Simulated assay, not measured.
Amino acid sequence: MTGTFLYFAYGSNLLRQRLTLQNPSAVFQGVGHLKNFRLDFKSPSDPKGSRWRGGAATIEPHPEGTVWGVIWMLDIKDKSSLDRQEGIYDAINVDIISPDNKIYSNCRTYVMQKDYITDRYDNRPSPNYKDVLVRGAQQNNIPQTYIEFLQTLEDNGYSGNIPVYNQVLDSLKQS
């Protein structure tokens, strides 16, 4: 199989260094927004045992919502890696609108599977996860009002070690 696909990232993969840890072919295409959806956070398991030690980003339909993110082009060979990384999510195709009204059709993105959504746990993201979202939004010049929205999200206050966050920080130092 050869070719490429477009991917709309709205969570930790906003940050290039996070995405390219496991998907090295990613090439920035632009920023854009998804209409009629809103950003939410869900904790599919006890946050103490989750990858990011808190709620993970997902999107859900909302008639007045807008979710900003980054459009990446990836080589088809990275699709299975991306699917594994997004293991508790279902892939869907969405149309993304750039700031200059260009339409990116059929972008792959991910929505948390309903089987994993529960209210048993604290759904707030860890400060580290939130930091990666904010850094990614800033890195890619997502509109300032959306960056401010991300900065004001309440986090869960987790202060322990998060290995994936450490990998991201190491990658940022090298770039």
Rank of each mutant, 00 (worst) to 15 (best):
G3L: 12
L39D: 06
T58V: 01
H33M: 02
K77P: 02
K77R: 08
D122E: 06
W52L: 01
R108N: 02
D83W: 12
C107N: 05
D83F: 14
A26L: 08
Q29F: 01
G69L: 01
E86F: 11
S12P: 15
E64R: 12
I147G: 04
E64Y: 05
T118N: 03
D115M: 01
Y10A: 00
N93P: 12
D75K: 12
P24K: 15
P61F: 02
K79Y: 12
V70T: 08
S159R: 14
V168Q: 04
W52H: 08
S175F: 14
E154I: 02
G49M: 04
V111Y: 00
L169I: 15
L6G: 07
Q138R: 15
F5K: 04
T4H: 11
S80V: 14
L21K: 13
L19H: 06
K79I: 09
L19C: 08
S126E: 02
P125A: 02
S81P: 08
A9W: 10
L6D: 09
S175D: 10
G32P: 04
I76V: 09
L133R: 01
F149G: 00
V132L: 13
D83V: 10
T66D: 04
V134R: 06
G11F: 11
I162W: 00
L82W: 12
R53T: 00
S159W: 05
E64V: 05
A91D: 14
A91G: 10
Q174Y: 11
R120I: 03
Y121F: 11
Q29C: 10
G160C: 06
I117P: 10
V111G: 03
L150T: 08
D90M: 11
Q138A: 03
E148F: 00
Q144H: 03
G136S: 07
Q144T: 11
D119A: 03
Q151F: 07
Q22R: 15
I117N: 02
Y104Q: 03
L133D: 14
R18D: 09
F37A: 06
D170C: 01
S45D: 08
G49E: 05
G32C: 02
